[in-house]
């Protein structure tokens, strides 16, 4: 059983949305986490991965079969529902509207990336505030560091993959260097965390819980 400190547990108990983000070297651990997530997760999950829009990928379709939680590509103006994973489509930034629906944006890449992790994290923090929880995984650039900082400033929970265990440590390291990590977890711990997530999330007073 993963031993979480009380302030982490407190932050988790008020989480209303979970962000998962990775780039190069992060796909495997990301999929392991998604496969572990329970089918009745009480929050929605946004996934941002860097991939080239010029080549077609069927990540979402192949994940769908292997996961208990619902998986889909984010569609513009759709509300974020609990127990659902929304992938940012390649070539678009994924934004969150004040009414907690999703929108897409095809403006300039940020950190050479579209979707950019920073962009989604920043606008999720602006809408969900302290109700934001995020996990930043392996990657070869610094996208996500400023986003994690924004989530932390808003009072949200920031978890970073332990850089030594990340296939490419640049991305998690950048977030840690900015002081934007509440918790640093190794790969085994990340899976344990995903397993236990429901205990913590449902322990709070969520509107969907009677």
């Amino acid at each position: 059983m993963l031993n979480l400190s009380s302030h982490i547990v407190k932050k988790l108990s008020r989480a209303e949305v979970l962000l998962l983000a990775c780039s190069a070297g992060g796909f495997k651990i990301l999929f392991d986490i998604l496969k572990t997530l329970p089918g009745d997760l009480p929050v929605g999950v946004l996934v941002i991965i860097h991939r080239n829009a010029k080549y077609e990928t069927n990540i979402e379709a192949s994940m769908k079969e292997k996961c208990r939680i619902a998986i889909k590509v984010a569609e513009e103006k759709e509300p974020i529902e609990a127990a659902t994973v929304y992938f940012a489509p390649a070539g678009y930034h994924l934004l969150v509207e004040p009414d907690r629906s999703l929108s897409l944006d095809i403006s300039e890449p940020v950190n050479f990336c579209r979707p950019s992790i920073d962009v989604t994290m920043q606008c999720t923090a602006e809408v969900y505030g302290a109700g934001t929880a995020a996990i930043l995984l392996s990657g070869a650039n610094q996208d996500g560091a400023l986003g994690m900082q924004a989530i932390r400033s808003a009072g949200g929970l920031c978890i970073v993959q332990r850089p030594e265990e990340a296939e490419i440590s640049t991305m998690p390291k950048a977030a840690v260097a900015l002081g934007a990590a509440d918790l640093i977890l190794g790969n085994g711990e990340l899976i344990e965390f995903a397993q236990q997530l429901n205990n913590y999330l449902t322990s709070g007073s969520h509107p969907w819980k009677n």
Binding site: L95, V96, E97, P98, S103, D105, S107, V119, C123
Partner: peptide, 9 residues
């Protein structure tokens, strides 16, 4: 206009 995008611009 969608607010999130407008806010960024």
């Amino acid at each position: 206009y969608s607010r999130a995008s407008l806010k960024r611009r």
